[in-house]
């Protein structure tokens, strides 16, 4: 399908960055959408491409957030160096968490990621000298550009937008590569993937590593956005939100994640000002998606696109139609 082709997806990403300022009044909100877009795409790489449901994404997000807080408030390291550091630390921790979790499969794998999520939360809570405990780390500065700090939300939005486009392009490249195609094979049939020679564990760990790098990178951007590295960013609840966004968006393409993140954040923003119990409505949305829209919002977009182009998904082919492969019969 055209809309799932990489160049089209990249076009959508660029368009999103350019269009958001026209539709949103808050630069903070727009930046948050882009940041979570990256985070959710990284979660999608695990769930949609590799078939791994990770409850540990908050660990990586919090890691990036704390790294930004610690490095920017206590050392003179510039943002341009701090961001790659966040990605590297995210890779290391994700390799560790992923490497241990994938030793088990199915439910036990999910439980392990959940357990790690709790573990890291309490680590952050306990080592308050480093993390600020309950208060988090305050006064995280925004990056400097041409000697001026990006205080205005929209100028920081531009900064995040550039990062977003670059990260997304890299992730599109990864999903198109031999590596990405092997991940899909692992998701489709793990036993066969191993039988044709792929060390499946190594591929899963590598997927975790990339996911961790991107998530921590985005976590660092987030800390600079809100000026705080809060304890809540490493909470289990963050992992949960990321997964909910991933599932609402759908997992058949990377841009689906941007859609999921935008939908969740915009809905939370609109509804919470109208009704304090808005999470109830979110629950309803999740029920609807789980029951009727298993391919998420992007699945809906795919359907509409197919209708518009009359390019309907081809009907099931009768096996007898295919069985008449006369050339197959031995002479």
């Amino acid at each position: 399908m055209l809309i799932n082709k990489p160049f089209f997806q990249f076009g959508l990403v660029v368009l999103t960055v350019l269009a958001l300022p026209f539709f949103l009044r808050s630069g903070i909100m727009a930046s948050e959408i882009l940041i979570y877009g990256m985070v959710v795409a990284a979660s999608n790489l695990l769930l949609g491409y590799t078939g791994l449901l990770s409850f540990g994404q908050g660990i990586f997000f919090g890691t990036g957030s704390y790294l930004a807080g610690i490095v920017l408030t206590r050392t003179g390291v510039p943002v341009g160096l701090m961001l790659p550091m966040a990605a590297v630390l995210g890779t290391v921790i994700a390799t560790l968490v992923g490497g241990l979790s994938i030793r088990r499969q199915g439910v036990y794998f999910v439980m392990l990621t959940l357990a790690f999520s709790q573990l890291f939360y309490f680590l952050a809570y306990t080592f308050s000298d480093l993390t600020g405990g309950d208060n988090g780390l305050l006064d995280v500065p925004r990056p400097m550009l041409n000697g001026e700090q990006l205080v205005d939300p929209w100028s920081y939005y531009a900064y995040v937008g550039v990062c977003f486009v670059l990260v997304f392009a890299a992730m599109l490249l990864v999903t198109q590569s031999t590596f990405g195609r092997t991940l899909i094979a692992v998701r489709e049939n793990e036993e066969r993937a191993a039988a044709i020679g792929f060390p499946v564990r190594v591929f899963k760990i590598a997927a975790f590593a990339i996911s961790g790098a991107v998530t921590a990178f985005a976590g660092a951007l987030h800390a600079m956005l809100i000026g705080v590295a809060p304890l809540s960013s490493i909470e289990y609840h963050t992992s949960e939100i990321i997964l909910v966004m991933t599932i609402i968006g759908g997992s058949s393409s990377l841009y689906a994640s941007v859609l999921g993140a935008s939908f969740y954040l915009l809905m939370a923003d609109t509804l919470s000002s109208i009704w304090p119990r808005w999470l109830l409505l979110l629950g309803l949305v999740l029920v609807v998606v789980a029951l009727f829209l298993q391919k998420g919002l992007w699945g809906l977009v795919e359907k509409i696109y197919a209708l518009l182009t009359h390019n309907r998904i081809p009907p099931e082919v009768e096996p007898s139609d295919l069985g008449t492969d006369t050339t197959a019969k031995g002479e």
Partner: peptide, 17 residues
């Protein structure tokens, strides 16, 4: 995929089509 499985480490290249 089956043909690539013979040299699986090559498939870790995230930049190669």
């Amino acid at each position: 995929l089956a043909a690539q499985g013979r040299t699986p480490w090559q498939a870790l290249a995230m930049w190669r089509r």
